[in-house]
Amino acid sequence: MKNSINLFFAMVLGVFSFGCATKPVHEGAYRQAQWETKAMIRNLKEQKTQTVDIDIMAIKNDRARFEITAILGFQVASLVMSPQEISYAIYPEKKFFYGRSSESAVARMIGLPLHPMNLSYIAFDQPVRGPGWKCYADPSGLISKCENQQRAIHVEWKDRSEGKKKVVITAPQFEMQWLFNAPQTEVQFKPETFTLKQPSGFKAIQIN
């Protein structure tokens, strides 16, 4: 299970950083939503595949919560974030991380610069932003592809149908297929939804 969460963070979170898209993209009109998603992650170098379910609750450009589970509902991690703060619990390791939400906060743990809010942006069909990224829209104005040629990383939105979609992320050593069910947009979140407390018996680690 540890490999599942490590692959998820290293592959999905690690490839993103802030910046600007190259052209206007039409985004969903809803401001908050909830998704049920499934991610299949392939480590091409080691020829390994991991599958996790990711439940997302998010308010656009504000805050988000991710619940990550493995096969048979085994709880892998909980992640709560805003543009300023982040906290997450990794259940197999019994570790709880909290602190400032920033590229450096996560880079010190996995060795790659990122801002975790990019996960929420992908769900809301917002462009990947950062130096070297170029993003493109399809004829209807929805985001269809972002790429960073220098890093050989590509993100594509595919198979849109009645709110469902597939996001494919490819890099030199990894491939991820992220399947989204149609979002629930008529949702009201409680304040505690975006609060994550240190679970009993977990080691707390502050990130700066």
Rank of each mutant, 00 (worst) to 15 (best):
M1G: 03
M1D: 01
N3V: 06
N3I: 09
N3C: 02
S4M: 07
I5G: 02
N6E: 13
N6P: 03
N6F: 09
L7Q: 06
F8H: 04
M11H: 07
V12W: 11
V12Y: 08
G14Y: 08
G14V: 04
G14M: 10
V15W: 03
S17H: 09
S17A: 11
F18E: 14
G19M: 10
C20R: 15
P24Q: 09
V25C: 02
H26S: 13
G28S: 13
Y30H: 14
A33L: 04
A33Y: 04
W35S: 05
E36G: 05
T37R: 03
A39I: 11
A39S: 10
I41K: 00
R42V: 15
N43F: 05
L44K: 15
E46Q: 14
Q50E: 11
Q50M: 05
Q50L: 07
D53V: 04
D55R: 04
I56H: 06
A58C: 09
A58H: 00
N61V: 06
D62C: 13
R63A: 12
R63P: 01
A64E: 05
R65H: 09
F66R: 00
A70P: 01
A70F: 05
L72D: 04
L72G: 00
G73A: 04
V76A: 13
S78A: 13
Y88K: 03
Y88R: 02
A89T: 12
P92F: 12
E93Q: 10
F96Y: 15
F96Q: 13
F96T: 13
F96H: 14
F97P: 00
Y98P: 00
S101W: 01
S104E: 14
S104K: 14
V106E: 02
V106H: 05
V106S: 07
I110D: 00
I110H: 11
G111M: 08
L112Y: 03
H115D: 06
P116R: 05
N118D: 10
S120C: 13
F124W: 09
D125K: 12
Q126Y: 10
P127K: 02
G130N: 11
W133V: 11
Y136T: 07
A137K: 12
A137I: 03
S140I: 08
S140R: 14
S140F: 14
S140G: 14
I143P: 06
I143R: 04
S144N: 15
K145Y: 11
K145W: 08
C146K: 04
C146G: 06
Q150D: 15
Q150A: 15
A152Q: 15
I153N: 13
V155Y: 11
V155G: 05
D159V: 10
E162P: 03
G163E: 08
K165H: 07
K166T: 15
V167I: 15
V168D: 01
V168W: 03
A171N: 10
P172L: 08
F174P: 02
F174A: 13
F174S: 14
E175S: 08
N181T: 11
N181K: 13
A182P: 01
P183R: 07
P183K: 10
Q184T: 11
T185D: 02
E186Q: 14
V187W: 10
Q188S: 15
F189H: 01
K190S: 15
P191M: 00
T193W: 05
F194A: 03
L196Y: 03
Q198W: 02
Q198Y: 03
G201H: 04
F202L: 06
K203H: 08
A204V: 07
A204E: 01
Q206F: 09
Q206G: 03
I207Q: 05
N208S: 14
